[in-house]
């Protein structure tokens, strides 16, 4: 996933635009199977590891699932970005840009 980072922002935008008919959400079950596979791979007895003193107990399950969510969400974001590109090439885009939720990245202090 080279260049995934630069896809995060446009992906966020696309996800904010209400009821967009974006494909990746429809692939839930495909990613699901992939996910199950990954969970199965990650499962199994785990050696104790010195975790640093944490104020919140995140739970092992909540830690392990994050690697998977990060991967699948990354793929979804990338697919969504390419889908937007295809749409804009076909002239189907509903206008580029347009911030959402007032969380513009340019208001740094």
């Amino acid at each position: 996933m080279v260049g995934r980072e630069q896809h995060v922002r446009p992906g966020r935008r696309a996800s904010c635009s209400g009821s967009d008919p974006v494909a990746p959400e429809r692939f839930g079950w495909v990613f699901g199977c992939l996910g199950l596979l990954a969970v199965a791979v990650l499962a199994g007895p785990a050696p104790a590891d010195p975790v640093r003193l944490a104020y919140l107990d995140p739970g092992s399950g909540s830690f392990l699932i994050q690697a998977l969510v990060a991967l699948v969400a990354g793929i979804a974001v990338a697919l969504r970005t390419y889908w937007e590109k295809v749409k804009s090439l076909l002239g189907l885009s509903r206008g580029a840009g347009g911030g959402s939720g007032g969380d513009t990245p340019g208001d740094d202090g």
Partner: peptide, 28 residues
């Protein structure tokens, strides 16, 4: 995942998430 791993410590190697990955989680 919580149910499957209840009570067990996760190996650091299996829980590694990059900063980009964290961004993806937030986006999700």
């Amino acid at each position: 995942s919580q149910r499957r791993h209840a009570g067990g410590a996760a190996p650091a190697s299996a829980t590694r998430v990059s900063k980009t990955g964290l961004g993806n989680i937030l986006a999700s």
